[in-house]
Structure formats: structure tokens, C-alpha cells
Design a protein around this nucleic acid. Structure first.
Lengths: 361, 361
DNA sequence: TGGGGGTGATAAACTAGTTCAATAACCGCA
DNA sequence: TGCGGTTATTGAACTAGTTTATCACCCCCA
């Protein structure tokens, strides 16, 4: 290294590394100020038509396009809506629930020219993820109002709407009566005469049963209410609980656990349709006939549940609608328009199809 | 308005509007330079432990978190991987293909701490969308190498990997032999003895049949080759084409068009499993028995196709794997590591299940 | 010729951080 | 006490744009 090389200026060095073309390059080349270049791109009518066209022509020739990050720094807009996911993307996307939710959210994104950012935990922390996400706001899924990540959003004044959360004053949210839905599902199974029942639950266990929170907790409350009305409890003898991942694979594993336990389970209540799919698939593979030998109920009524073999009895919740409404609420917050209602609660209903029957006598 | 009010400085005004807390506020409050604050957050060991802790303490007290946009402007990193979608998010998400693809891409995102940005056309233009997207690179779906959006990425030196594209020198891509897969599917139907066949295609028509491009064009080539081998052509008499949206609803509409035409169609070949789902559902609703009265073949082998009633005969392509490999290629580009192979071609195979049978005599 | 009004263009300040290069402080040792 | 070598800290420049406030210019009219 020569003495001279250390004197190479920063500008020269970055020149060498084929620097990106910036607004300054265009300004110089076009013989105008960078303000003019900015106006040419952003404020139609602010410059004379001649100047505007000249600047845009120069920009085209040099292949210039304004840096969206620098622009965002000024405008404080990213034109991006985040979706906070409590799990990794690869896991969430195994549950068609999210595809339907995103489809609903996406309708609103198109209308407002927004992109959609999937925000999973960063290095294990959703709070970290919210710090790093380049978003104008977000839809929060699978979290409660007192979650650290939710608090982080509030503190940073990032507008957000929660989905599937216990309704709480002044927190915009779109929910569903999970407890009622679960109650209907379990009641249906009980009224068919089942009393050896497996509950296939996705995991978010935090200790004892009373500590189940969120969607899981609410659905459990519904199940337990129906069980109590029929004099049953989660005693592991009549009613057994198995936890699994919220995907087809999880449902298959759950089925095998129930079936190998030889407790004579005649019905499986799944906390999610996709888990029910796995149960049905594993049962078919084992030659267990549904609903003759085993009844299965789900929760969600995904678009494909009616196409299942047999068509799945389940609890319908309007998932796409939920996404759309949540995103619409966000859009109002985003544009500082008042919300008519802070919390929406959408209806659920039991959809009886062909995956349940009375137990074999 | 008084004369005084016009003299209110900018700082005072923004103060009033409860300005965001910046690195300067923390520096002042902690009695250090903003360089020190930056180091405290980003370069462990660069400051004394005492100073670092003091700064972080002050930051915590004031609820400060570095602005990710300003940070990105310097670091030139957004830690976001884009997925370029040729349609609106709400439409794409109606096809479980994307959920599976995203699931694969998501595996790599987790490993590298990336978020995933869904980038649909902005004001009708994907090129515009690429200009505005805050991403470090992207996975391009449903586009060809000579698409304007692809060119825009190249020009702006945004690293990208294409998915489902005609392999081309030096463009990183992960594809599948669509033509071969389609050939297998059509051949299977023909060998069962069908000669009145409906093709249910998603839309991307650009004029005459020879102008089909991309995935659509490649699959058509496969279908046509098999048809030719059996002396058939797309003549609208024996083999009829219907275009529909790529979702369950589209498949249902396609079925109704085929069935109402009363051309005695005995088999429907769908360009996508999700379209086949719609065909099967509409057929069931009409009391048309599959495969006895109507054979159906799909393309994709989505996770749920084996659970369909009846289980769907289809062409398997490893979608999740495709997403994962594409994302891994991107990760290498992103870290300036050399690619072992620029283009990958994954295998397809016909999966014979129960939705096809010989035509009723 | 002077002044008002409108248009077109710009210099400078601003967005909120990171990074470079230089300095200050400290420690041990001669 | 002086000096070399770390270690800790900082001012200034830099990222790439937008925005504000001002100015120059031209036309019209008095």
C-alpha cells in the first residue's frame, strides 16, 4: 500500500465501487437542483412541463429511480402493512387459516396500494421483530393485548389492529366468539352419545390448564362448559388431551397417540381444521372409518373442509372477512379517520357435515 | 395569528407535536455523543461496559428504539426478502400453492432473520412495485426472464431468484419440468380411453394459443404433445378449453361451462389442483360421480389433494422444496457467496389416485 | 420607471441514523 | 516525569432523499 492510496477520498473510493446513481447525479446531469428532481418525481405541476420532462428524460437515460428507503425516511411512510406472526413463517403457512386471513387482508392492501410484510419473531423475539420491521402499522395475530410485543407497538405509536383477542376497551380488534364455537362443537359430539373423547390441541401451554390463554384458552373454556354440562371433566380417562403442531402432520401424530392409547376413544375434537385433516388422514391410513368408528370435529371451516373425505363437521368462522375487516380498521387508523367501533365480534356457527355419528354400540 | 407565532421555530413546532425520540435526545440525556449511543446499540465492546449500560438504561427510560428506516438507509439492509406476485395478494392467497411456496421460503427466512414482503402490482404495475418495495432482494413468481419487472430488478441491481421460469443462462432460477408433468397428466387420461376432454386453465391469455407463455405455455405444450400422440387437437369439439380464475370458485365455474355445453366431456384436466378442487366440488353438488361419470386430473399435488373426495390424481411438484431452494439461492447471492448452480430443475411425477377412471361405455 | 403578482427554480435545513478519522484519557513502564 | 500503546469517546461527514422559505425573473399595469 502506497502513501498515496491512503489519501484517496471517500468520494473517489465509492466512485470506484460503481456507486448507486442518486438524485444528485441526476440534478447535475440535468443542470438543475435536486429539489427540482424531487419535484419532477413527486409534485406534478410544480415545475414547468419542459423542465419536468427534461429531468425525467435524464433520469430514464441514467436508469435512475428514487431510493425508497431515503424517501420513507422523510415521508414516514413505508406503504407496508405488517402481519405479526407468533411463529415462524414456514410454520404459520402450514395452516391454511393464515392464507385465508391474508387473502382478506390483501383485499384492503390492493385498495390502498400497500404491500404486506410477514413479521415472524426475530431471534426468538417478536418485540425485536417489531423494532426492526419497516412498516406503517400492523395486524397482530395470536397475541393478547398485554403481550410485550403489543406493548412495544403501543409505545412506538405504531397503529395496529388485533385479531382473535379478548375484546378490550380502546384496542381495535376483530374477534370471534371462540368459546361459543367450541361449546357448540363439543356439545354436538356429546349429544351424539360420545363420552370417550380426545381433544387435539395446538400448543401454547404455559403450565396448568387454567393458564391457557388466548384463542386456545377461550376454546377450552367452551369445551369444558359443554363437558361439565354432561358431567365430564378433563380427567384423562374419559376425556383426554393431546397437544400437537397446528398442521396436518400434527393431526396425524395426535390421532396415533389417541389410537395407540387404547382408551376406546370414539370422537376427536380438534382445535383447528387443519389438525382435523391430519386426524382424518391418519385414520384413513389405519383403516379406521369415519364417522362409523371415529367422529371428528374441527374448528375454522376452512375452504377445503367441505371437500374432505368425509366432509368435515366443524365450526365456521369467517376468516377472510375477519382479515378484511381488521385491515379496513387499520386503514382508518392509518388515515386518521375515526373508528365507528373499536372491537368487532363476528359470528360463529356449527356446520354439521358427515364426519360425526353416534358411537358404535 | 400574531406576528410572534410566525417566528416559532421548526424545532419548537415539532416539539409541540410530540416529536419522536431520536438518538440525539438519548445522547443529550445520557451526556454522550450520538456516536456512543449508536455503538451502545450496535457494536458490543466498543464502549466501556459502564457507558454502554448507562446509555441503554437512559434509552429504556425514555422508551427509545432506533428508527429502522434511518438505520436501513445507512446499512443498505432492510432484512426483508420480497416475493414478487403477478396478482393481488387476495387472489394469490386463494391458491394454496402460494402458502406452500411461502412455507418453503419461510424456512430460509427464519434461518437468516429475514421478514417476508408480499409485493403485488402497485397501481397495476409490478415495475412500480419493485421501485417502491423496501427489500434486499426477491423471489420472482409467475414472470418470465424478459418481463419488465424482472428487467427493473436487474437494472437496480436487486438480487433475485426466479421460480417457475424457462431456464436461462446466468439467471438464478428454480423450476420444474412443467411440460413433462402436463404430458403425463394428459397421457394418463388419454390412455384410460377418454377422447372428449376439457382443459380448465387459469388465465394469462395474450392472444392466440401459440402466445401462451410461462408456466401456462409450458403446461399447454405438454398437453398438446400428448393429444397429438393420440391424434387429437384443441378443436373445441373433442378437446375444449375453458379459462377460469385459479381458485376453487374458478374450478366450479369451469365445471359448469363444460357440463352445460353438453359435449359429452368425460374428463377434465385442470392446470392447477385448486381448480380441480372446484371441479370436484361442483360435480359433487350436481350429483356427478367422480371418477365414474367424470375423470379429473390436477397439477401441483398440494398437501390437501390426497384428502380430497375422491383423492385427486395429479402431477406432483415439490412446491415447498422449490421455495426453500429458491430462498437458499437468494441467501447465497445476498451474502455474496458463489452459486453452485444457477438453475435448478426439480422433478415432477404423476400421482395416480382415485379421481380418474375409464369413460363409461 | 417602479411596484405588485405570479411562476419557476433553488439553497439550506431537515428526516434519523451510521461510520470514519481523529482525539482524549488512561495505564504501565523506563 | 515522559513516552508509547491501548482503550474510550467524539465531531464531522455520510446515507439519499423531502420540504421550507426565499429568491430571481417576467409580465402587466400604473
Amino acid at each position: 500500500m502506497t502513501a498515496g492510496s491512503s489519501k484517496v477520498s471517500r468520494a473517489q473510493r465509492s466512485q470506484k465501487a460503481s456507486r448507486h446513481i442518486t438524485i444528485n447525479d441526476i440534478a447535475k446531469r440535468a443542470g438543475v437542483s435536486k429539489t427540482a428532481v424531487s419535484f419532477a418525481f413527486n409534485v406534478p405541476g410544480r415545475l414547468s412541463e419542459k423542465t419536468t420532462q427534461h429531468i425525467l428524460q435524464v433520469a430514464r437515460e441514467m436508469g435512475y429511480t428514487p431510493n425508497p428507503i431515503a424517501r420513507s425516511l422523510n415521508t414516514r411512510r413505508t406503504n407496508t402493512l405488517g402481519v405479526l406472526l407468533p411463529q415462524d413463517i414456514s410454520i404459520a403457512m402450514r395452516n391454511p387459516f393464515f392464507a385465508e386471513l391474508l387473502s382478506g387482508i390483501g383485499e384492503v392492501c390492493s385498495a390502498h396500494g400497500l404491500s404486506l410484510l410477514l413479521v415472524p419473531p426475530l431471534r426468538g423475539s417478536l418485540v425485536e421483530a417489531t423494532y426492526a420491521a419497516l412498516i406503517d402499522g400492523c395486524i397482530v395475530t395470536g397475541l393478547e393485548a398485554d403481550d410485550p410485543a403489543t406493548r412495544a407497538l403501543r409505545q412506538r405509536r405504531i397503529p395496529f389492529v388485533m385479531v382473535d383477542v379478548e375484546p378490550e376497551e380502546d384496542i381495535p380488534a376483530v374477534s370471534v366468539d371462540d368459546a361459543a364455537g367450541a361449546y357448540f362443537a363439543m356439545k354436538h359430539v356429546l349429544e351424539l352419545g360420545h363420552h370417550r373423547i380426545g381433544i387435539a390441541s395446538f400448543v401454547s401451554f404455559t403450565g396448568r390448564l387454567e393458564e391457557y390463554t388466548g384463542t386456545l384458552g377461550r376454546r377450552f373454556n367452551g369445551y369444558l362448559r359443554a363437558l361439565h354440562e354432561h358431567g365430564l371433566t378433563l380427567d384423562n380417562e374419559h376425556v383426554r388431551l393431546v397437544e400437537c403442531s397446528c398442521d396436518v402432520e400434527g393431526g396425524k401424530l395426535a390421532f396415533h397417540q389417541f389410537w395407540s392409547s387404547r382408551q376406546g376413544i370414539t370422537a376427536i375434537v380438534a382445535l383447528s381444521d387443519v389438525i382435523a385433516y391430519g386426524v382424518v388422514q391418519a385414520a384413513s391410513e389405519q383403516g379406521v372409518r369415519i364417522p362409523q368408528q371415529l367422529s371428528v370435529v374441527g374448528f375454522d371451516d376452512l375452504e377445503f373442509s367441505r371437500l374432505l373425505r368425509p366432509p368435515l363437521t366443524t365450526v365456521r368462522q369467517p376468516i377472510r372477512e375477519k382479515g378484511r375487516l381488521a385491515a379496513e380498521m387499520f386503514a382508518r387508523l392509518y388515515h386518521n379517520e375515526p373508528l365507528e367501533q373499536h372491537t368487532l365480534r363476528l359470528p360463529v356457527e356449527l356446520v354439521v357435515r358427515q364426519s360425526c355419528a353416534p358411537p358404535q354400540s
